[in-house]
Design a protein around this nucleic acid. Sequence first.
DNA 1: TCATTAAGAGACTCTATCGTCTCTTAAAGC
DNA 2: GCTTTAAGAGACGATAGAGTCTCTTAATGA
Lengths: 206, 206
Amino acid sequence: MAESTTDARRRRRGDELVRAIHDAVLVELSEVGYGRATMERIAERAGCGKMPLYRRWRSRDDLVLDAVERNLPVLAPPADTGGVRTDLLSVLEHLSERVLAAPVGAAITSLVGEGRRHPAITAAIRERILEPTSPVPAVLRRAAERGEIAAEAITPQVCTVGPSMLMTHTLLEGAPPGAAERIAIVDRVLMPALTAGAATARATGG
Amino acid sequence: MAESTTDARRRRRGDELVRAIHDAVLVELSEVGYGRATMERIAERAGCGKMPLYRRWRSRDDLVLDAVERNLPVLAPPADTGGVRTDLLSVLEHLSERVLAAPVGAAITSLVGEGRRHPAITAAIRERILEPTSPVPAVLRRAAERGEIAAEAITPQVCTVGPSMLMTHTLLEGAPPGAAERIAIVDRVLMPALTAGAATARATGG
DNA sequence: TCATTAAGAGACTCTATCGTCTCTTAAAGC
DNA sequence: GCTTTAAGAGACGATAGAGTCTCTTAATGA
């Protein structure tokens, strides 16, 4: 592209350049998908040559994995809002608007179908968004300590169902769910599952 | 792969050839993903030249879409097992073992991240697996007619949560959930959501 | 200030795939 | 059996991207 103005020949290094490359990877992933992402376009998008890429990463896979991992936010347990319902809404809002709606979210939706070919990528998504280290079990444990729900109500299914529905909605509708949909998920699915412990035990047959 | 019968230079036409090509597309999708699928390899896998492909489909996208649509099973409402719980288990079993675990399921998981680039593909998946035309609302309506659940308990969230969890499990774990996991989904998530209508109404403030 | 490092740019060779085209000959229809 | 259609095979030039390499020079640090 045309070397535009005065500081057009500014030359970045180190972390600044790495961040620009990571950002370029996320954009490339969301625009053309994992399968079609190329080193050449990533370099062009980052405004650098191909050498800085090959110097730092052995392959496209390494680069993509690194870019996604560095951009996956670590989800700290959210502020205690005083009740499990509002805690859960807060978690789902954060996941929808700060993760899935962010550039890294578009990248994730492009990568999530590559599981069988690139287990490391989906492992990172799984461990950092859906696994027990996620914020959902954290707010549920807090609620159990308060006596708001029964500790036995905290099952893997209840922990994953929220993020799962956000992910599916994002994949199939093209965007994460809005506030109304998140409220419906909490009130019609999560809260019943958390408060129907006794009935569930009966249905399961003990 | 050597064609089955003695005559290796057997030459297929029409529907038989189309089916072989469609099958090759599904295998190609599951092995290299949508972005990397090529006409050349599809032709090779189908054991034919490239001309039959270009003669029938304008582009790779047309071919892929056609192959997926023709292989997406139409999900008829399952046999009435007499109770909503077993009906739901039957539906989830069918989705897991006849759809997601089949070749078309591997193709679907490879395509589901292409939503923003190829809306027609995810639209087909959405409409034929997750939408209200799916078997879940059918068994729920049947249960409501029997008086087993309240009609108001049939919400979009309750209808989609089952398939959503199957899909997420398949994407992140590499295979659809087994029987134990499906039972847990029904007993810990679906049944509570269906039987906690009154509590839900209170929580929603409606 | 000066030496060292590595960025920006892009040339280069290879390979994969594209979409078109041709040739021969099975398969299907009359 | 003869004609028509299209399948199997693969050649073809064009293009895109891979990964390596070179050249110049901006940024950095002693």
